[in-house]
Computed example of a mutant assay.
Amino acid sequence: MTSRLLKPGVYCPIPSFFQLDTEDLDLPSFEAHLLRIVQAGVWPLLAGSNGEAIHLSHEERTTLVRGARRTLDARGLTDVPLVVGTGGGSTRETLLLCRAAADAGADYAIVITPGYFAGALAQDREALKEFYREVARKSPIPILLYNFPAASGGIDLDSELITELASEDANIVGVKLTCGNVGKLTRVCATVSDQSYTSKHPRKTATEEFLVLGGYTDFLLPSAYVRGHGAITGLANVAPHSIKKLYDLSVQSLTDPSALLEAQRLQGIVARGDITLAGSGVSGTKSLLQRLYGYGGNPRRPLPPISREDAEALWNHPHIRELVALEKQISGQ
């Protein structure tokens, strides 16, 4: 069992970078970006949707985990946990990926619902629960539920199913809600964020609570007020300091009302940037990283790169310009 705690805060799904000529992994860019994100106070997530996990072989996923752990440890960042995507097409493959990730140095696995046979699974609530029960029971590391209907054939885990799974298995330590359903987040938090619940249903590591994390940052401030725990957001690749500042102010405002006005201002800038970047997908994120830091490149085929015209329009979009300016101000760069 890992000794690195999964804490409330901001998590960033790190892209997998590829060499332009061969599409082989570009490990130097990956390691440089990992350090950039962590040094901004944001926790990393590897081989997620933004990391193009569906485009990676099992061996490449392992390579990224080993490289990340080695890179962090070499910089003295030994307390930073690694959350790794281990979703597969079957329960068997998912467990193979969980074990491989654990062996490579992962601390937690985030598991998306298999969506290839969504038509059958979506109608069978017990089958959905059994998938997560079995993975949690057999995974050597704790898991998070990953609810992303757009990437799971439309399967959308409801709040009751999520809280039932959280209550039944202490090896399930959180959920990422990329459904964007603020009501669902509120309902889940109303159950799992209560102190009496944490005492009655402790995770396997006694000091951990069940984390409820949004999949976007456009409701990071409101989620703090319903006892949410932060977000896992691709926007943190572009603006990690800004989103970390927004999270910190949101938490601070719960006990210090003087922080609320600035939190609201930052939430507006971040929310506008979030919806704008989300529309351009992985290729848009990579194009912005190329502009900002000199690395990014293209996604793996068949996912197309962003066109030159669209990349230029994204870079010059007022919401992105405002976010980039905020990031430079907060980071001091």
Rank of each mutant, 00 (worst) to 15 (best):
P149I: 06
E134Y: 07
L144I: 04
P28W: 04
G76R: 09
T62V: 15
T233P: 02
T198G: 08
I320W: 05
C98F: 00
H241Q: 10
N298G: 04
R61G: 12
A263C: 06
G174D: 02
A101Y: 03
A311S: 15
V42N: 09
Q252S: 14
P44S: 08
V135C: 04
G87V: 04
S57G: 10
L289S: 02
Q39Y: 10
R291G: 12
A127R: 07
A101D: 02
T207L: 09
S258I: 12
H33A: 02
V10M: 07
S199Q: 11
E59F: 10
G89M: 14
A190G: 14
I320P: 07
L161A: 11
I232M: 10
D79H: 15
G234M: 02
E31C: 13
F131L: 07
L20T: 12
V135H: 03
Y197Q: 02
L261T: 14
R133D: 03
P302K: 01
L121D: 07
R92W: 08
K244P: 05
V270A: 09
V226M: 10
T217G: 10
P142N: 01
Q329S: 14
Q267E: 14
H229N: 14
V238T: 14
G279Q: 10
V188C: 06
L254H: 03
I243N: 05
S193R: 10
N237H: 06
V226L: 04
C12W: 02
Y146V: 02
L277S: 00
V226T: 14
I172R: 00
Q267N: 10
E309L: 13
A170W: 00
R36M: 10
E309V: 11
C189H: 07
E59W: 08
I172N: 00
I14Y: 06
I54F: 14
R133F: 05
E23R: 12
A109L: 05
E208N: 03
D156L: 07
V175G: 05
P28T: 02
T207P: 05
E327F: 12
A136S: 11
R99T: 11
S287T: 11
A313M: 08
G214Y: 03
D248S: 12
M1D: 03
T198P: 00
T207N: 11
L96N: 13
V10S: 01
A109Q: 03
P222E: 04
W43Y: 13
Y295C: 01
E52M: 13
T163V: 10
I37F: 04
V65C: 09
A278K: 13
V324N: 09
Y132Q: 01
L246S: 01
Q267M: 10
K244H: 12
L161N: 10
Y11F: 14
